[in-house]
Design a protein around this nucleic acid. Structure first.
Length: 406
DNA sequence: TCTGGGGTCCTAGGACCC
DNA sequence: TCTGGGGTCCTAGGACCC
């Protein structure tokens, strides 16, 4: 069967978090809105197009965004709502084709090569998909379609908001050449700076540099990758199953944490959250990583890989304390703590019986059960409940927002 | 303007094994 | 016991993405 030449589609929801918020609060329509942290250290996770016109963009400190756009309506994130909306969107996408590769909560690649019998053109497919998503969820989306992943992704960006862009086969390099090299998927701030030193401003400039030169300057892996992308060569197929490799939680504190006791208390809270996330996902972690960010933003990690997979707060907390010792934080103020698990094992797999932690599994399983039925606040650890008449704890003022990507 | 939270992948060195 | 080379795993840091 003949396939569409432009057989890869990239679907991207427009200002996803903002649009989900607008569904339930119509007063947010037509005005500048940002979803993100409301505290002094919060950043913008998602900005409406009205806000973007005032220079507000994601990852910008919220305080800056408010100064930039005094009329900005700021909404704290609601990850559960975005998760539910995401599931609804993906269900609609999968009704068009099973060949879907999710990239995040709000975007995906689709292999539409085989859909020629159902749609007269790639654009016809895109129109049908966007209408179905809007009809089913009320949410706007944009679609880019091209012969390779890189171009489909860049095209959906150019199609925004609420549009479609097809890059016809044969026009790939002409489409890429005038764009700034920073627009290339995989060129961030650091690589951009190094490319500038080479005199590279546009993707066309990049394509004119010999691959060997790029490999020498950027390393063989990145060098050959960028050399290929700049020439619109991107053989990566649309792939289905994405396997989770790590699960982590982290928290930036409104005020820096100081002293061992405060850090231990926060690590216990994190061990609790991480254990809950691991068990909900059906995993146990052989590897545990502690992340510490200091007041000057310098960041260190300490990790340990053991033999036994862990998924109880009790065991994760013990591992975290051992890592905290190794980090030798001392009295330095800490603005962020993080705890993560990797080397994930299927929790259902038979595990070595560890007598030292006997009983915790069952106890925490029961606690988890209560949380699932009555919410996370139904059960708390005695150590985490604020005792009366205690001096104010630095950094305890930040609620756990658990925000996700825009 | 002072920088969130949750991920993936790459690099580079060292340990260890054959 | 003056020592090759490859494979694999672990650790730490960093770039990048949404």
């Amino acid at each position: 069967m003949e396939r569409f030449a432009e057989h890869i589609a990239h679907v991207d929801m427009d200002a996803f978090f903002v649009e989900v918020e607008r569904r339930r609060d119509p007063a947010l329509r037509g005005v500048p809105v940002a979803v993100g942290g409301t505290g002094t250290r919060g950043v913008v996770a998602s900005a409406s197009y009205e806000a973007r016109r005032h220079g507000v963009h994601s990852a910008m400190p919220m305080a800056h965004a408010r100064r930039q756009c005094p009329a900005l309506r700021v909404v704290p994130p609601d990850p559960r709502a975005y998760g539910a909306a995401s599931e609804a969107v993906f269900e609609i996408i999968r009704s068009f084709t099973p060949r879907v590769e999710p990239l995040s909560v709000d975007e995906a690649f689709l292999d539409i090569g085989g859909l020629r019998l159902h749609h007269d053109s790639p654009r016809g497919f895109a129109d049908a998909l966007r209408a179905a998503i809007r009809g089913g969820t009320g949410l706007p989306s944009s679609v880019g379609i091209a012969t390779v992943k890189l171009l489909a992704k860049m095209a959906s960006g150019d199609a925004k908001p609420d549009g479609v862009l097809v890059v016809p086969a044969g026009t790939e390099r002409a489409y890429l050449a005038p764009k700034p090299v920073r627009a290339l998927w995989g060129v961030g701030e650091a690589t951009h700076a190094r490319l500038e030193q080479l005199g590279v401003a546009t993707i066309g400039d990049l394509a004119s540099i010999p691959e060997a030169t790029l490999c020498r300057r950027l390393g063989p892996s990145l060098g050959s990758h960028l050399a290929a992308l700049s020439r619109a060569v991107d053989p990566r197929p649309v792939e289905g199953g994405d396997v989770v490799k790590s699960i982590s939680v982290e928290q930036t504190y409104e005020r820096d944490l100081e002293g061992r006791a405060a850090m231990e208390r926060e690590l216990l809270r994190m061990a609790d959250r991480l254990a809950a996330r691991l068990r909900r996902a059906g995993f146990a972690a052989r590897g545990v990583t502690l992340k510490v960010r200091f007041a000057d933003f310098s960041t260190i990690t300490r990790s340990h890989t053991g033999r036994a997979p862990l998924d109880t707060a009790h065991d994760l907390y013990a591992a975290a304390l051992a890592l905290l010792d190794r980090a030798a934080v001392g009295e330095r103020p800490v603005r962020l703590l993080g705890l993560g698990g990797d080397n994930l094992d299927d929790a259902a797999a038979p595990r070595q019986l560890d007598l030292a932690s006997g009983g915790w599994d069952e106890l925490e399983g029961a606690v988890e059960e209560v949380r699932l039925r009555f919410g996370d606040r139904a059960v708390a650890r005695a150590r985490l409940v604020e005792p009366p008449a205690t001096p104010p704890e630095p950094g305890s003022g930040t609620p756990d927002t658990g925000r996700q990507a825009p």
